[in-house]
Design a protein around this nucleic acid. Structure first.
Lengths: 218, 218
DNA sequence: GTCTATATTCAGATAGAC
DNA sequence: GTCTATCTGAATATAGAC
């Protein structure tokens, strides 16, 4: 059918443009280092005009943080739920790794802004954010421990330490990974190889062990 | 012999105290968010007195960043050099992991301040810091690739990705590891287990593979 | 919706007393 | 070495015109 010209209010467009600019500047210059004048200049507005869209600088940073956290969590859960029921732990873990990295790269300024300004936001906002982060942490913990209980992952591995190590490695990609240099799927597969082959209970066929593939799944 | 009362100039003490306070506040509040008045208050001085010890706010942040980088690099190289010549790759890697984590935890405020304010420091300072960081990156790269050339680590693993993943996992400890909760050596051994068992060329004895130890070395 | 103009607060830095 | 007092610039936020 022919596209009905759906009205997108001018305010919605500016709202999003302001938010994107804010995320980028909060990332680059930190919270106090980012002035409303600079954000306004990025989107060809004057400083006073920001206040039509956001009540205060605090409300702006809160919007950036909320979006970053919600996107990462949503993508992770969706990706794992989309894996067929009978799949291996390796496939579920690779799906979670891929989704995590893909999302933090896609919304890079939002995620990096979060790490840079957390600790400068109002206590109430920080508390809410940390609760969400903890819930995402439990999601990963369950993923790993379930794979451990089914015997797919080593029973003697400390899965809390493993989770912290893995999420650290994944989060670090936001600092260096450039999607135009190499396909993300390649990185996700390699990471999965590092992780799973380091945790896998079953020993690989000893004969040609040197030629085991790193990320065989995709 | 009885301790000769060695004179430590008052200025040296204040200098160090100011630097420590600056590192903590730069970490907590970022560069622009940290006022010289706040740093001064931390060490029971007035704002103007800071200028006796440092010429400017820029000089202060530069001192913090330089110290953070130098300590981490120095500790890493020293630890690996201290490993006996005939040692396994696993031992060298565990030494590097232990040194890296131990140092970033010990000088936590300095390392975390670095990540928070990089990008807000003068271009020339940032360039110099990134050159040091790259040199440390090559140190790790050599460590991994040499182990690969001797056949101790898998030949088919992408060691650049492996290095980025590992350093990410290690750096993340600065955000969560509390030394009073558990011994650092335990964490370093577990991390080494994750990393090496994920990269090891030789397949473990298939019989009782489930009961392989995670970090058997220490 | 966006502008200009401005009130108010607070930052980094300097000068000179102690 | 540290203090007090102060200069100067710039920030958030508001008010009202367009």
């Amino acid at each position: 059918m022919p596209q009905t010209p759906r009205r997108i209010p001018k305010s919605t467009i500016s709202h999003r443009r302001v938010l994107d600019a804010a995320a980028r500047l909060f990332h680059e210059r930190g919270y106090a280092g980012t002035t409303l004048r600079a954000i306004a200049a990025e989107v060809q507005l004057e400083a006073g005009s920001i206040y039509y869209h956001f009540k205060s600088k605090d409300e702006l940073i809160e919007a950036v943080l909320d979006e970053a956290m919600a996107r990462v969590i949503g993508a992770g859960r969706a990706a794992v739920e989309a894996v067929p029921a009978g799949a291996t732990a390796r496939m579920r873990i690779e799906a979670a790794i891929h989704a995590h990295v893909a999302t933090i790269i896609e919304i890079g300024d939002y995620t990096l802004a979060t790490r840079r300004v957390i600790g400068q936001v109002p206590e109430e906002v920080r508390q809410r954010l940390m609760r969400q982060r903890d819930s995402y942490g439990r999601f990963w913990q369950d993923l790993l421990e379930q794979a451990q209980q089914t015997g797919e992952l080593r029973a003697d591995a400390d899965m809390h330490l493993a989770r912290m190590f893995i999420l650290g490695g994944l989060n670090w990609t936001a600092e260096w990974f450039k999607p135009d240099r190499r396909p993300l799927a390649e990185v996700a597969a390699a990471f999965t190889g590092f992780v799973v082959d380091g945790l896998l209970a079953a020993a690989p066929a000893p004969a040609t062990s040197r030629h085991r593939r790193a990320g065989s799944a995709r």
